[in-house]
Design a protein around this nucleic acid. Structure first.
Lengths: 362, 362
DNA sequence: CTGAAAGCGCTAACAC
DNA sequence: GTGTTAGCGCTTTCAG
């Protein structure tokens, strides 16, 4: 337990930094003693309690001075015990290894701190038994709200837990909310359409789709792809939709399969940039030039997207915007539990960033 | 706060799931009532308190049954208030945008959960005033320990705060500990030497170094570079050491400068893979073939390293190992505060992964 | 205007 | 073996 338990005996209005050893953490009682008042008055002053009749300005000053002198910091545990918000946001991440979600976490953490919240991390990666306890753990930590990053459809236990959780839950990047919680997401259909419109405008007709496990966003992107291509180009040839694992190696596998097709595609849309990186690599390894022989469009615009060879044409994910909106909903809900968590879906449109990986077909 | 405050009135041994509305969170008192015993006995049973004389097995069973039935979960706030460990590890990350640190966070979170801990995120990214409060916030959260990821030398305020924190602090990836805290890091010198040995063995003599801000690890890598090259090759030409920002764009800038040199290098060591990605991109853009015209060695082996064009020769960072060791120290220290936080440095050796970006000079 | 006192959920003496 | 009793630090009636 480190120093926290150590300073138990020596209470009182002592100078906090007596020596190098662990000082006692000052409490309101200490301040009260120093200021010559009662602990409850200290609480009132420090919290600016909207009392009916205000507190004597003189007392107030004495208390504030004492608090400053002692380096007082409120104990959130004690506050939380009384039912006060803990100012903690629990984040459950589908896969923090995914650079995309890592970026999302960064945005969430930054945004949260801006509102005085900290983020507790959980991640559903892998074993179900682990994920199972996750919601429980986070609620138990008395997070004021829980933010889901990514689709958790394949973790039924987690979803069940979540349903029983007492704090508000909002979901980001989980597709069109089959959950009963408010959702903020990118407009997957709009993104895919923009990418395909670009490709079709360039003259491509043989367009393939490479995607990870069809969950949430990915499923929607695939659906949008199917709809668009079917309507605007025609039936989708056998093998033009590749399902692989969502990492560069998956992209390589997909490309390997695609070039073996009787009529290989002249363009590929990938469901994420991570996959596109693999596609680019495998294409290069097989002597397929991008974009001359093959155009590639990604999705996300990860940091490296502008620095692949060739630089990747992709859809810029409005990460900050999505996180900000989601967090706002979460915090509002946390503050006012009565605001019925009406399951609404809020979509933000991605932007097409045209770089060097797309050109008209040969 | 959501439902937590709501169920105040209705205490007692009620079925937790009466209707859809927020159920009251069961407390030990509820269990006691249901089991027909006292609250302290409940505590003893649930915590397996090593009492002198054991508890009647029958009572024990009744309590356990009641707890299960009510879906009891201990309140960590109340526990923490009593001085119990909070099972929270605070992580302060230098820059969570860096894919490398994102990976480290993932490892930390996974590893921590394995030991029953959760991770609270803080990141020192950017503004000093924000970072300033960080240590304070994390301590205030009553983390059992704080783990630093990356060097924070440029955040003096943070370091000062850290010195006054009551919980144990361990530092990962911060170089050779100028801090007075236990440190686990990669053996930077060994890594750089392995990379350079590889390059020199291939026949390179004109080797440049591209690095980010020389802090912690980066500084050490640069020092190792200087030592090795000076001793084994000779004086380092003007301009052979490039300082840029640690992202792909920085790598591009560095390459642009290097090719302008009267005697451009035939090989480049970068202090991180992220930089190497930029170097590869810029080289390609300028028609410099890698590895034929220019060999490139990275450091970290990020997920994408095997999928760049060409695949990057790099030093594999033993991330899991470093995190595991660091966490162990942190937890040990947290459990036994008396174990003097003797500032020791624990180094783990990286492995050279030879891929396609290196070959003998023309 | 301010003090005394109760109690949030839990653990740890201290009884019987 | 198990119940009773103090608090942990704080907020919040309820009395002055």
């Amino acid at each position: 337990m480190g120093g926290r338990a150590t300073g138990k005996g020596e209470r009182g209005a002592v100078d906090p930094r007596t020596d190098g050893g662990p000082r006692a953490v000052p409490t309101m009682r200490d301040i009260a003693l120093l200021a010559g008042t009662s602990q409850s008055t200290v609480s009132r002053v420090l919290n600016d309690t909207p009392t009916r009749v205000p507190i004597a300005i003189e007392t107030r000053e004495r208390v504030n001075a004492a608090a400053r002198q002692l380096g007082y910091r409120p104990n959130p545990l004690a506050r939380g015990l009384r039912g006060a918000p803990t100012m903690l946001i629990g984040a459950i991440v589908r896969d923090i290894t995914d650079p995309f979600f890592a970026g999302a976490i960064e945005a969430l953490s930054t945004e949260a701190r801006g509102s005085g919240y900290n983020v507790v991390l959980g991640h559903a990666h892998g074993s179900a038994d682990e994920a199972m306890e996750l919601a429980t753990v986070l609620e138990t930590r008395h997070c004021d709200a829980i933010v889901l990053l990514g689709d958790m459809q394949d973790q039924p236990q987690l979803l069940a837990d979540l349903r029983n959780v007492l704090v508000p839950v909002v979901a980001l990047w989980q597709g069109s909310s089959p959950l009963e919680v408010p959702t903020v997401d990118v407009d997957n259909a709009a993104g895919i359409e923009a990418g395909l419109e670009h490709l079709v405008g360039l003259g491509h007709r043989r367009i393939a789709f490479v995607s990870g496990r069809p969950l949430g966003d990915i499923r929607e992107r695939q659906a949008a792809f199917e709809t668009f291509v079917t309507k605007r180009v025609g039936p989708i040839p056998e093998g033009y939709i590749q399902h692989v694992s969502n990492n560069p190696t998956g992209g390589e596998d997909a490309l390997a399969a695609l070039v073996e097709l009787p009529e290989p595609p002249t363009a590929i849309m990938t469901s994420t940039d991570t996959l596109a990186v693999g596609v680019l690599h495998a294409a290069h390894a097989r002597g397929r030039r991008v974009p001359e022989d093959l155009s590639v469009v990604g999705f996300d615009d990860i940091q490296l997207a502008g620095h692949t060879i060739p630089a990747l044409t992709t859809l810029r994910m409005p990460t900050r915007e999505i996180v900000a909106r989601g967090l706002k909903v979460a915090i509002d809900l946390a503050r006012d539990g009565s605001a019925a968590p009406e399951p609404r879906v809020d979509l933000v449109t991605p932007t097409l960033i045209v770089r060097e990986s797309t050109t008209p077909p040969a």
